[in-house]
């Protein structure tokens, strides 16, 4: 544990921040731009993991294990979310014969 902490601290905190921000923005852009439901889904995962990375980095730097505990929880919830999400995507496919989210525009005002 000590060892891992030291290894993490070997990289300056700024680098973690920049990396996770980049990952998060990539995730957001992916959600916004892509129309394929599975890709959007993967982008969401990317955003979640960007946050996880940041939490782990802060946890190591501040010597507070609470951050890591949160990461575990997020991973567990994300797994559940994936299960539900994939099920929804399957249902979408069955209904529209496509996984293009732009076909789902019945809420048009």
């Amino acid at each position: 544990m000590e060892n891992i902490t030291q290894q993490i601290q070997a990289v300056p905190l700024d680098h973690y921040l920049v990396l996770s921000s980049l990952l998060f923005v990539i995730g957001v852009m992916g959600v916004l731009v892509r129309r394929n439901a599975i890709v959007i889904f993967m982008s969401v995962e990317l955003m979640l993991n960007a946050v996880n990375l940041l939490l782990a980095a802060f946890s190591a730097y501040r010597g507070d294990p609470a951050g890591q505990i949160f990461v575990f929880f997020i991973m567990a919830v994300a797994a559940a979310e994936v299960a539900v999400g994939l099920a929804i995507i399957v249902m979408i496919y069955r209904n529209t014969r496509s996984i293009d989210v732009n076909f789902l525009n019945r809420l048009k005002g």
Partner: peptide, 17 residues
């Protein structure tokens, strides 16, 4: 205002962001 409701999920997310 009704026209804002395009029905495209992407647009809603964009608006949210």
């Amino acid at each position: 205002l009704r026209l804002l409701q395009t029905g495209y999920t992407g647009f809603y997310i964009f608006a949210m962001v």
